[in-house]
């Protein structure tokens, strides 16, 4: 199997971190943002994993889940739920936040779009009362959410409101060697600016006004 990634692409941080956490052997090839790796997709989609069957996986969450499964860790129902929440609720807000911060240079307005999802994450973590999202051990859900949030939460210039439980949980991941190394590969030590050329090529996200703030794990 072969993993295709590009520098400065936040989705690639997830799969590189998952690869390091799982310790799965895999060829990694760095390509341009615009490189068409998946033959049937009109738009470039990275990261992509070429499987031994010749099929391509083009979703970063599906790739992470696969790496964990190959490593003997199947994802639980709670994991599934976090991954779905990440893809449907957090990711649209994050892309908008990155667009505002990186392309428009308005870091101070990021909290407007991110505070909702961060608050629901905080609530779940405080209710769950476990060190990690799905229990006492790191799961694919932690890796995916850590990596997704890494660019914004490791940047102190973004004025994000106090979410104590999120911070404690995030710091557990941020200190791991796997994350430091994946972040270095993707962001090149340049923080949010490391994603500028990638973000400029993305279509402007649709406004969050028409989006709902679904909460995970709440009634």
């Amino acid at each position: 199997m072969k993993l295709f990634v590009s520098e400065g692409n936040p989705h690639c941080l997830k799969v590189l971190a998952a690869l390091e956490v799982c310790g799965v052997q895999c060829d990694v090839q760095y390509v341009n943002h615009e490189e068409k790796v998946v033959p049937f997709l009109s738009r470039p989609a990275l990261p992509a994993l070429l499987l031994s069957s010749g099929q391509h996986l083009f979703s970063s969450n599906a790739i992470c889940r696969y790496l964990f499964e190959v490593n003997g860790q199947d994802s639980s129902e709670l994991c599934n739920q976090w991954l779905e929440w990440e893809a449907t609720v957090l990711q649209p807000a994050l892309l908008e936040a990155l667009h505002i911060a990186v392309v428009q240079g308005k870091g101070s307005e990021v909290s407007k779009v991110l505070q909702g999802p961060l608050n629901s994450l905080d609530q779940s973590l405080s209710k769950g009362n476990t060190p990690y999202l799905t229990g006492k051990a790191v799961s694919v859900a932690d890796v995916v959410l850590w990596a997704a949030l890494y660019p914004v939460l490791s940047d102190s210039s973004l004025a994000l409101g106090e979410c104590k439980c999120v911070k404690t949980w995030f710091d557990r991941g941020a200190v791991m060697h796997s994350f430091q190394s994946a972040a270095q590969k993707v962001l090149q030590g340049k923080g949010l600016q490391g994603m500028k050329s990638f973000m400029q090529r993305q279509p402007a996200p649709r406004s969050s006004q028409c989006r709902d703030t679904q909460q995970c794990n709440s009634n």
């Binding site: 499987l51 031994s52 069957s53 099929q55 996986l57 083009f58 979703s59 969450n61 599906a62 790739i63 889940r65 696969y66 499964e69 190959v70 991954l83 779905e84 893809a87 449907t88 990711q91």
Partner: peptide, 17 residues
């Protein structure tokens, strides 16, 4: 198989996102 399961999850995600 692990590969098919990944492909299934990918299309389910594609559907909702």
């Amino acid at each position: 198989s692990a590969e098919s399961r990944a492909v299934v999850q990918q299309w389910l995600e594609h559907r909702v996102t």
